[in-house]
Nucleic acid binder design. Sequence first.
DNA 1: CAAATATACATTGACAGGCGAGGTATTGTT
DNA 2: AACAATACCTCGCCTGTCAATGTATATTTG
Lengths: 115, 115
Amino acid sequence: MSIASDLIRGHTETIILANLLHRDSYGYQINKAIQQKTSGQYELKEATLYTAFRRLEEGGCITSYWGDESSGARRRYYAITIHGRLAFAKMRAEWDTAKELIDTLIAEEGESSAD
Amino acid sequence: MSIASDLIRGHTETIILANLLHRDSYGYQINKAIQQKTSGQYELKEATLYTAFRRLEEGGCITSYWGDESSGARRRYYAITIHGRLAFAKMRAEWDTAKELIDTLIAEEGESSAD
DNA sequence: CAAATATACATTGACAGGCGAGGTATTGTT
DNA sequence: AACAATACCTCGCCTGTCAATGTATATTTG
């Protein structure tokens, strides 16, 4: 996990919402998915993950319910709400803007902007 | 300035160093340059700017000296060090990595990765 | 059967970066 | 005299991250 977390900071909620777009999921599974997608380069710390869930739920972006596992540890599933989908779309747009902005700001002057 | 500062967080130092690559400069001028480059979309808050200067100087990435203005407000100029140039190169590389990582993590699954 | 490992959730307290609010000083404009 | 622009600086709060710690269940290993 060599990536500075300050560079990911602010994206935690977006990342979680992205993982809920197509199916309900739970903390442990979402984190495993993140590790897989990044070939082990990145993972959310548990404390970060669960505090983000709380923020998202308080903000009305997700709802939660206990799974009815007959065996194994209990799981709290999360579902994205309509509001959450809108928020996600907005976060994605903001990311696209920020990405260009940062690229502009840290480009060595005189550099071609051909991307 | 519609950009969420959490998305820029962690880039402040990189942005400042980028502005010192080709010439020494001072706080006010660097911030004006940032505003120009982003067409007014972004600017550093003064408190953010000056605390970043201090961090960078403590970290040996920049050195500072007072300008010898014969008129107008005094200016503290900053110069990037060799160490600062190396740090900048590293930050740029980390940004490139983080950018791809985040793109991967917030992509809607099933989306083409053609970029 | 005991120990270790994996699954799964949750909280606490500390830390670091960003920033609002406030301050100082000089120069030019109205 | 009042105001705006230039230019610097600091204090204290806020927020997101995370190490450490705790709970509980199931499976694997010796």
